[in-house]
Design a protein around this nucleic acid. Sequence first.
RNA 1: UGGGCUAUAGCCAAGUGGUUAAGGCAUCGGACUUUGACUCCGACAUCGGUGGUUCGAAUCCACCUAGCCCAGCCA
Length: 546
Amino acid sequence: MENKNFIRSIIEEDLEKGKHQYPVTRFPPDPNGFLHLGHARAIIMNYTLAKDYGGRFHLRFDDTNPVTEDAIFMDSMKRDIAWLGCHWDELYYASDYFDTMYEKAMLLVEKGLAYVCELPPEKIREYRGDLKNPGTESPYRDRPIEENIRLFKGMKNGDYADGQMVLRAKIDMSSPNMNMRDPIIYRIQRSPHYNTGNKWCIYPMYDFAHPLEDAIEGITHSLCSLEFEDHRPLYDWFVKHCEMEHTPRQIEFGKLKIPNQVVGKRHIRKLVEEGVVDGWDDSRLITLSALRRRGVPPQAIHNFIKALGLPKSEGETEIHMLDEYIRGHLKTRARRIHAVIDPVKVVITNYPDDKQETLTAPNNRENEELGEREMTFSNTVYIEREDFLEEKPNKKWKRLSLGIEVRLMHAYFIKANEVDYDEDGNVETIYATYDPKTKSGSGFNERKPNGTIHFVDAKTAKPAEFRLYEDLINPEIDPDADFEDRLNPNSKVVKQGFIEGLVEVQDKETFQFTRQGYFTVDQDANDKLVFNRTVALKSSFKPKKK
RNA sequence: UGGGCUAUAGCCAAGUGGUUAAGGCAUCGGACUUUGACUCCGACAUCGGUGGUUCGAAUCCACCUAGCCCAGCCA
């Protein structure tokens, strides 16, 4: 169940007092990168907060800086947000408001609340003062309104060079809040914008643009992260002095931080360039596209985010917490079939070589709606290499050993009698005998097997590739070390094995491979089946480490 | 004394003066089991510190400590 959070309280209060008919929220990404799990909190919270109270949710690209932004990111962002099921009621672009923003900036100029400053960047920084000392007023601060109007028009018309001057709000150079020390509103930047082309050579700064965007759209609750708390007075100042009809309220909450993950743009790019990961959607990454490819159900992400709540504190949430929500969602939805990832052959010596029978098994014991399937059985099967040890090591061993009888799930009991090794000393073939009386479903209960293991009939098995993922970053290594020194060399292990031969695999289907985990068909699967491990099953089995 | 914010178990997180401080993850026991899974039972904190107000405080006050953010013509 979702935790109550302070923002819900604010919204409920506003609704009760009749301040709003319904809430309007927005997710305002800067289209300059790929969305990752951290963004999911903002997306899902904005979406559910609006929907839970009968409100509206906007997607707005905050495209106020063409130098760093690119339209290609917008498509992936839209795809990711849609995948999460957070359907926006409206899609907006901040750049569509450039005319209004310019007019509002001019309003400020006319009211004597903004001025054109010709101080070069270094001087502006110098005049801003520092954390301990107040700033110094710009010599251009008190130029006449008429002159400011002329200059600002000139800026817009391209009369001046990039960086030659900026428009600044006239607030308070001695404010203890650095953001209030005459912040820059517009800069000259000759860069074509994917949306407005070359219409503009001046672009608004975030602090000015954002509150106006929110106000224009009638956003009621403008959620953002903690680092913008200091900007709230400025936000309110612009809404007020620009005489906006609507007054949105900025509310800050803590970002979702996940330790031991690589999310930084340049870091991921470097990993891709160095071939450490295969791309932005590599399953070891937590970009939304990577999670999607790995087979993580979007609903699991919703449940995970809701469970975390919306705190005002800043903590770090371990990624394994998401795993539990993935399993929880898939538990009754995925078909549970057999796959042998690291196969070893078992020959059943008392089963006729030319015989093959068909067995039936439920697809999911916890959800009968998933029906049943058929599986073949013959005298040659594959079992998991780790499910056999020549000698039973201890009483807790619940798998196959010489002289020991186990159940092949959904088939028969088999007892191992002999084993052949190859020249390297690896098990090559296990010879076993089966007991026809022990067929699954027969009700046989004269004796208990030493455990149950899964298998695949070698005569019909479909070859498949399994990609087993672990943490990209080794959590054991000092978190302060450079992330490249913390890479886990075993983060991706590729195995060639088999799945049941009679199972028809759907595109992107997620299965539970019995006793192993949840796996999803990868996009690489075409002539050959390829599965990504979405998440492993939990296990209380603790083999002794070598 | 720059300003802003945070502090509840290994991790996340409810709680806004009044019974034994929710819940989830993790962990450890135990039951069940044709998945060492699932499920089920059980264990697991006195609330950053100190002092104060009060019959009574995680909740109010004071002081202290620790951590995060702010000096882009980024967002």
